[in-house]
């Protein structure tokens, strides 16, 4: 076994320091060491998007990031999306639009949507579908997800213009 090392990064604004082996993925460390289990594991090879987190402003699949690579990074996970006890527009739109069934893909899709709206505040249906193509959902057929993303974008736009 290779030596464990100390890795320091911020998660949802909090500085954390963990001790890990190089072979531990960021996903494993978030879930098992930091108990941030909102980030899910669906395939462990980057094909389902359930483990999506935002790393230094970019969405990444945390199953394909080594924890040691996160040294100095700023991370945002599903646990950091709501503002205190208030849901953000995307979360609220998912609930209002019934855009989840089993809910296992939901954290990844919400995080990916946050990244999308940051980059493109007013996405077309095609933009949404392309941006979310790396997030598999097996329950909903995507219809209500796409609508919820667009509803959230609209709400945010209205809020921004007021």
């Amino acid at each position: 076994m290779s030596a464990k090392r100390v890795v320091t990064f911020t998660v949802n604004g909090d500085q954390v320091e963990i001790l890990c082996e190089p072979r531990q993925s960021l996903l494993e460390v978030l879930r098992d060491d930091l108990d941030l289990t909102g980030t899910k594991e669906g395939c462990s090879n980057g094909n389902c998007g359930a483990c999506t987190v935002i790393m230094d402003g970019r969405p990444v699949v945390s199953c394909l990031v080594l924890a040691v690579e996160a040294e100095g990074a700023e991370l945002r996970t599903i646990e950091g999306v709501a503002c205190g006890s208030t849901l953000d527009e995307v979360q609220a739109a998912f609930l209002e639009g019934a855009a989840l069934q089993c809910g296992i893909c939901t954290p990844g899709i919400i995080v990916q949507t946050e990244a999308l709206l940051e980059e493109n505040p007013n996405p077309t249906e095609d933009d949404v579908r392309f941006y979310l193509a790396g997030n598999l959902c097996r329950c909903t057929g995507y219809d209500k997800i796409v609508r919820a993303v667009q509803a959230a974008a609209e709400k945010r736009q209205v809020a921004a213009s007021n």
């Binding site: 980057g46 998007g49 990444v60 990031v65 999308l116 193509a133 790396g134 997030n135």
Partner: peptide
Amino acid sequence: IGGIQIQSR
């Protein structure tokens, strides 16, 4: 190449 998340890396 992959999805948007893959393209980040």
